[in-house]
Simulated scan of single mutants.
Amino acid sequence: MKPAAHFKDAFTGPGSLARWVGAGMLVTTLAAQHPHLVFDRARAKDLFSMVPNWKFFAPNPAVHDFHYTYRTLDLDGETSEWREIEMIASRKLHQAFWFASRRPEKAVFDICTAILQEAQKGGVRQAQTLSSYQLLVEFIRRTVREEQGEEAVRGFQFAVVRGAGHDRDEEPETLFVSPYTLMKTPTPQALAPA
């Protein structure tokens, strides 16, 4: 068999439909990885999510870090200084391959992003209605309890500050400040009418 006939059979012979579909999927998948929006057309028409997305980086990567600070109100009514919660630990070499301990850091980042988006739309009161806000409150409450104990603290307030990471030229910006929150959550019996 001549090489030209063998090449022709690859595209017209038995099983050629499967090869055409496979080649089309390969080209579509490769094109869909390109960051330009014109290449997303194939994925937009993909009703069954057959075209994978193997992009290694986000289209709009985060360029800022969130820092979480809190201050407490003691039983005498005195307010403490702001304290930062250390979320970002120094990285180790093995974490390039397995970094499961970063999941809480990422979860708090995502929760904070949801709260900030809602606060921009409707203010602090609107953000307080979110379940993600309650999660962040409980995270701060647990941190205060671990660092200072619960008996001497009446309440706490937290703030979310945006920093540019390693860029020291950019000043940190306060994005969100919560109202004071009671340290001890009221029990259902305390809320019941007498």
Rank of each mutant, 00 (worst) to 15 (best):
R103K: 14
A58R: 12
G123H: 08
S90T: 06
R91T: 10
S80Y: 02
D76M: 06
H64S: 13
S80L: 03
A89P: 00
E86D: 15
E105V: 15
L116R: 12
A58S: 14
W98G: 05
L93G: 01
M87D: 13
F97A: 13
S80E: 00
A58N: 12
N60G: 04
I115H: 07
Y70M: 01
I111M: 15
K106Y: 06
R83Y: 08
W98F: 15
E105D: 11
L93W: 09
V63D: 04
F97P: 01
L93D: 12
T113Y: 07
A58Y: 07
P61R: 02
E78K: 12
L93K: 00
E84N: 10
R71K: 14
A62Y: 00
I85W: 04
E105C: 11
M87L: 15
P104D: 10
E105F: 09
S90E: 13
T69K: 08
K121Q: 09
D74Y: 01
K106G: 09
G77I: 04
D65P: 00
T72S: 08
F97M: 11
A114G: 03
L75R: 14
G122I: 07
S80C: 04
T69F: 11
A89Q: 09
D76E: 10
I115W: 06
E81F: 06
F99D: 14
M87T: 15
K92Y: 05
N60M: 06
R103Y: 11
S80T: 06
A100Y: 03
H64Y: 13
I85C: 14
R83G: 02
F56N: 05
N60D: 04
Q120K: 15
F109A: 12
M87N: 15
I115A: 03
D65E: 14
H67M: 06
